[in-house]
Amino acid sequence: MIPLYWWLIVAAALFCIGLYAVLSRKNAIAVLMGIELMLNAVNLNLVAFWRYITPQALTGQVFAIFVITVAAAEAAVGLAIFISVYRMHGSINVEKLDTMRW
């Protein structure tokens, strides 16, 4: 079997790419894409741990399903907020959305 470490490294790389997208992109939708990448990395970790450490219990898969549920809800609400903001400001550049900054 493929060593567990390989899976964890791939998940860590995916997480860091997502983190970079969240920190560096200007467009709010691109930031959301980064968050989705990070959630995918976490799910990959959960499933890899299930397969290699507790293959008899199904806890890892159940948790991955809950994470996917939350990701779907978050994407729907997030994109609705972006569309609403776009309608009000004409832009979803996160650098220009500083109305609430003190």
Partner: peptide, 8 residues
């Protein structure tokens, strides 16, 4: 969402 918001 990308197609509905064309700012950037």
């Amino acid at each position: 969402a990308v197609m509905l918001t064309r700012g950037l």
